[in-house]
Design a protein around this nucleic acid. Structure first.
Lengths: 244, 244
DNA sequence: GTTAGCATGTAAGGAGTTACATGATTTT
DNA sequence: AAAATCATGTAACTCCTTACATGCTAAC
């Protein structure tokens, strides 16, 4: 019920954490968030949104066209929504009295307090699933919205995961060398190289985090981007992570 | 019906193309074939095998224990099957008269003539799906079993696909620069770099294929063990290729 | 004679996609 | 007023995984 451990939920929560948005824009933002070439399909997005509304993480507001302007579409990316609302206001032409009534109005999705909690929970109490490719990407994308300890845990978990993979791949690579043709071998070599490179990237990030986190002072409050992140002072220390 | 365009079918066809095998071994081989860290689950493999038998691409032989030895398990990887068969022969103890009767014997999967045709078809008449990540990997792994023209078509299709992706990612990256925090930005930068690197890799492979296909134009770029990387970003001159 | 690991399978379901269907708004 | 684009939604399907269930063979 509250399952849906997929990348989409976290991505939506994270983006709505910044500002309310409607689905269409949300799709674009989710799609470019990572480095996914592909776009998220509506067939994934809307059912996920509905389910999240049922769970209480977000609300669906249909902005009444008469009073909509400054209020509803929000700053978002500043682009589409803003321009449109402005244009509509300029012409002074709300298309009819309805729009909210007959279904199919523009819907602005907005995080609830529970939704924010859910987001922080998914970020900081994440299990091993967060070391997987896609899931790691989404978590990483929102690193600025979580604390240093969580960042470290995720980075190191990911590195460990990749090193395990490396181990396995190296073994089978060595065993293959004579048995397989040059194409198969080249594929495996290339895969190996990619994973190795990703491990060094992670290591750099880890070193970077460490150098920032360590220096002499203990952080009482970390505010990377001016937001205050509340988290009970003593908790979470052991980080005994388990399944979601 | 005969659909199943997934990576598993082609991987199985390709591996059985070399030699018959039973499912357990097949799983291991499929898992290490690419550079997938993960292993293929039985829940994927066995239903796929069954469906392929129904389609007529392969047969399921239960080797009769009495006469099994040299015949059935074949050279395969040479490891497991061989040792076991030998051991059983040595003790002279076929466990009973049944084994084939009551279900649950060891099953050796073997390609039929139709299966070989199917494999060749999937390799050479492949559509755009072959440019996708997983599917490309499987196709590439079996490049030695298809012709130069097909190899070229797949490599160039893949490169084009990645360049499209690059275009999109570059755009959104440039648009993001000021708007997003450093973590998101770093993720996108890293993604971009990875795709760029993969494009260069493909370009090298394409050049290599081309030099072998058209030997009149000599290329001296055949490094001893393929250890030359790097290619200026933004070249792509000359290669006026258009496919499809 | 029981544990360990090889070997084959099935049921349920998760996480997404494609293809379709419709409505609202803007541009030409 | 037609075309384009923005916007929301559903149904059916794909491909794969997890968790289970079973039996055979080797080894202690």
């Amino acid at each position: 019920m509250t399952k849906r451990g997929g990348a989409v939920e976290l991505a939506v929560l994270g983006l709505l954490h910044e500002s309310p948005m409607h689905g269409y824009e949300l799709r674009k933002r989710v799609s470019t968030l990572l480095g996914w070439g592909r776009v998220l399909s509506y067939g994934s997005l809307y059912p996920a949104l509905k389910q999240m509304r049922r769970a209480g993480w977000l609300t669906e507001d249909v902005p009444a066209p008469d009073q909509a302007d400054g209020a509803a579409p929000a700053a978002a990316g500043g682009r589409t929504a803003g321009r449109k609302a402005a244009a509509r206001a300029g012409t002074g032409k709300p298309p009819a009295g309805r729009a909210t009534a007959g279904r199919r109005g523009k819907i602005v999705y907005k995080l609830t307090a529970e939704g924010k909690e859910r987001f922080e929970d998914l970020m900081s109490h994440c299990g091993p699933s967060a070391w997987e490719d896609d899931s790691f990407g989404v978590h990483f994308a929102f690193f600025a919205k979580t604390d240093a300890e969580t960042r470290m845990r995720i980075l190191e978990g990911r590195r460990t995961r990749l090193e395990e993979r490396l181990e396995r791949v190296r073994t089978s690579f060595a065993r293959s060398r004579e048995r397989v043709d040059k194409y198969t071998l080249e594929l495996q070599r290339h895969g190996l190289e990619s994973v190795e490179r990703e491990v060094s990237w992670l290591q750099e990030l880890i070193d970077d985090e460490r150098s920032r986190a360590a220096p002499t002072v203990r952080r009482f409050r970390n505010a990377p981007d001016g937001r205050d992140r509340f988290r009970a002072p003593g908790d979470e220390a052991g980080a005994g992570n388990r399944e979601e």
